[in-house]
């Protein structure tokens, strides 16, 4: 049984996205410091202050049955370990705050990814060291639909096949949908559910969002499509209203590496929840 107990020093523990990894590494360092401090203290005291059964001991706090013992406190120390952790937490909150908008934001507010791309325009996504997140010149909107138990994708107005393509794949013997995207592009997924709450987890990008039922994810007007989609003149599908109107959820998908990975469902949705899969392919 091959078990890797210790990752090599150069190996990033997480390897998700630079955003996640930077935060992760910082938190791991602080976890080691705080944990180490606590455990060293614990081990020291549990060994140093041992006493044997029957030995004489100093009843410095006046312990006696039926008597409330003497107070044992030290105001300075108690303030110290209230204030210092508080500062650490404020620091951790600050470093976590910055990348918030990079994760979600609706297309209406500025997510740092510019405006929606014109047809054929490229995002040119780059990593901004100063902001600690990816930035891009523009983004593409694609459609993701969840149902019991599978995913449907639609490239909407991203008609260039190089930028977005929908297909099928077989994962572990199960047929599933597949989405092919281009590296270096930023996509905004507009998502709806046809029935219960689901949540796509784009594992390699560390991104997930709950997808709630939206009325348009059903096909009430009987045209064979979800009501969220409407046929345009060019023969493609587009959203039949604005994202807000349709009640869709959104999440940013920055395609940073060339890879093929799985989309998992991470909100329990019924019997086939574990097999509600899709494949995401990112090509160069």
């Amino acid at each position: 049984m091959r078990v890797r107990l210790f990752p090599s020093l150069g190996d990033r523990m997480a390897g998700i996205t630079p955003l996640f990894d930077n935060l992760w590494n910082e938190y791991i360092i602080w976890s080691f410091l705080v944990g180490g401090f606590t455990f060293i203290w614990l081990y020291h005291h549990s060994l140093w202050y041992k006493s044997e059964e029957g030995e004489d001991w100093d009843n410095k706090d006046g312990i006696e049955v039926g008597v409330f013992p003497k107070h044992y406190d030290n105001f300075t120390l108690e303030i110290a370990w209230t204030v210092l952790p508080f500062f650490l937490i404020v620091y951790l909150a600050l470093i976590s705050w910055g990348p918030l908008d990079a994760i979600w934001s609706s297309a209406e507010a500025d997510g740092g990814y510019g405006d929606q791309c014109a047809s054929g325009e490229l995002s040119n996504m780059t990593w901004s060291e100063s902001e600690g997140r990816y930035v891009a010149e523009c983004y593409h909107i694609i459609y993701v639909e969840a149902y019991q138990w599978g995913w449907n994708f639609d490239c909407l107005e991203v008609t260039v096949p190089d930028l977005c393509e929908v297909g099928t794949a077989v994962i572990d013997g199960t047929p599933a949908a597949s989405l092919t995207l281009k590296q270096g592009e930023v996509y905004l997924a507009a998502m709806g559910s046809a029935d219960v709450t689901h949540a796509p987890w784009f594992v390699s990008w560390g991104v997930k969002e709950d997808v709630l039922y939206s009325q348009g994810s059903m096909d009430l007007n009987g045209d064979g499509l979800s009501d969220n989609l409407a046929l345009t003149e060019n023969g493609d599908y587009a959203l039949s209203g604005s994202i807000g109107e349709l009640g869709l959820m959104t999440v940013w998908l920055p395609a940073d590496n060339v890879e093929n990975f799985l989309l998992l469902c991470t909100e329990y949705c019924g019997d086939n929840h574990a097999y509600m899969l899709a494949q995401i392919n990112v090509h160069a």
Partner: peptide, 14 residues
Amino acid sequence: MFFPSIAMDTHLHE
């Protein structure tokens, strides 16, 4: 403590 940092929570949740 890793969870309230939302950028990590989006990966670690569930």
